[in-house]
């Protein structure tokens, strides 16, 4: 089989919208209040998803999810597809799996005629919650300070494939020439992408209640569209309508509250 161009997993909502500076939701992606409405059925995102659908039909792209047999990354490593999109953590993974061809990593592409913006971090976070004793906060602060030491950062970066957590940590790694040695060459593409522009109101991040469920709605509807059950526009309209129900419910759960 000749290599196809793209292996597509189903996660093209958030980073795509941010890098093109188009909103996922009103209220500046939810930052300005609880009464937000989803907007991704009205933006460039729709054309993008319609393109993906067309690429799949025309044979340029393959859907690769665990249920479809393998992930996009596997498809790339096997040389089935020439390009795939993923977290920077996979830079580490792919090095370990040593594909039989030369490869490299790049920032996610943007459409012609648009302006590139910064992307946002995703993944797990550490939280410090209110209502604990002073001693516990001291301990929490000490732990966070420990994580931000250059030694911890280097350990973290070399073992996970993720990015350093502070600017100082990044500078320290640069000064050591960390990113000039394999397997770390170009892994700081992630940082260049994250800091490409100053974060604006639409590229700070996304702050929406029940976002995990909104993603699930998006995923299920996009799957239906890709299987030919409905048009992409119908699918995204349904996902937005159902997502808005989740947002309304979240707002009701926190009635009278506002963001700090």
């Amino acid at each position: 089989m000749q290599p196809r161009l793209f292996a597509v997993d189903l996660g093209h909502l958030e980073q795509f919208s941010v890098v093109h500076n188009v909103p996922v939701a009103s209220n500046n992606n939810g930052y300005d209040g609880l009464d937000s409405q989803l907007l991704f059925n009205t933006t460039l995102h729709v054309q993008h998803m319609e393109n993906i659908q067309r690429w799949i039909t025309d044979g340029y792209a393959l859907v690769r999810t665990p249920a479809a047999g393998k992930q996009a990354r596997d498809s790339f490593i096997e040389g089935e597809c020439a390009i795939f999109f993923s977290s920077i953590a996979d830079h580490n993974t792919i090095h370990k799996l040593t594909p039989a061809f030369a490869w490299d990593v790049q920032m996610i592409p943007t459409y012609e005629g648009t302006e590139r913006h910064n992307t946002v971090v995703g993944g797990a976070s550490l939280w410090v919650l209110s209502g604990k004793t002073d001693e516990e906060y001291k301990a929490a602060a000490a732990y966070l300070a420990f994580l931000a030491t250059p030694e911890s950062e280097e350990f973290w970066v070399s073992n996970t494939g993720y990015i350093p957590v502070t600017k100082t940590g990044y500078d320290a790694l640069l000064a050591k020439g960390f990113y000039t040695k394999q397997p770390y060459v170009n892994r700081d593409i992630a940082l260049k992408s994250l800091t490409y522009t100053e974060p604006g109101p639409l590229t700070r991040g996304i702050r929406l209640g029940s976002f995990i469920q909104i993603r699930a709605e998006w995923l299920a509807e996009v799957e239906a569209a890709l299987a030919g059950q409905k048009t992409m526009q119908e699918a995204l309209d349904t996902a937005v309508a159902r997502g808005n129900d989740h947002l309304a419910r979240f707002a009701k759960t926190y009635a009278g509250k506002s963001f700090p």
């Binding site: 249920a67 699930a216 799957e223 239906a224 299987a227």
Partner: peptide, 9 residues
């Protein structure tokens, strides 16, 4: 492990 609830629920 098998389907994650999909395809489309």
């Amino acid at each position: 492990t098998l389907t994650g609830g999909g395809p489309f629920r």
